[in-house]
């Protein structure tokens, strides 16, 4: 007999207690059980980055994690980036301002990866940005605009 596991973690600042089957993946738990459709499943095998989320501040692929691995962790998805008054995160603002997307399917994963990058390296070079997003595939090919957006963020950070 398969018994469900009780999983407790922090999701976008809220405590979550939820039951899941042992083989439930994080991407399925987030999208289907918790209704957060920001993280997308494209390849389901770690090649594309569209399911990227932050786990204890570091970007990870939610298609390659079992739900039970969330126990005790702090999770942030694209839905958790809003400020208290519903303001967009500065990275989201610049994506809008500079048009760093076409279809938008890679955008939630891309932005989570960029936030991890900027946390560890607030002023990345263009090459460092390229390297950081090398696991996030954009099939529209908006890479140059994405690089422009991240570069602009780091310039604004350094002007402050």
């Amino acid at each position: 007999m398969i018994s469900n596991l009780l999983i407790s973690f922090e999701l976008n600042g809220k405590e979550i207690h939820i039951e899941a089957q042992p083989d439930r993946r994080v991407i399925d738990l987030l999208r289907e059980d918790l209704g957060l459709t920001g993280p997308k499943e494209s390849c389901g095998r770690g090649d594309c980055g569209s399911c990227s989320i932050l786990v204890d501040g570091f970007v990870r692929l939610s298609c390659l994690m079992l739900a039970v691995q969330l126990n005790g962790r702090k999770i942030v998805t694209i839905e958790g980036l809003y400020g208290p008054k519903g303001l967009l995160h500065p990275v989201q603002d610049l994506f809008v301002e500079l048009g760093a997307l076409q279809c938008g399917f890679c955008t939630p994963g891309m932005i989570m990866t960029i936030i991890d990058l900027l946390n560890s390296n607030p002023r990345p070079s263009r090459d460092e940005i390229r390297e950081a997003i090398s696991g996030n595939i954009c099939r529209c090919g908006a890479y140059q605009k994405i690089l422009d957006a991240v570069e602009t963020i780091s310039e604004r950070v350094s002007q402050r």
């Binding site: 770690g46 980055g49 970007v59 991890d116």
Partner: peptide, 9 residues
């Protein structure tokens, strides 16, 4: 090796 998220895992 892999990509940044793969290297985190």
């Amino acid at each position: 090796l892999g990509s940044p998220p793969i290297r985190n895992m």
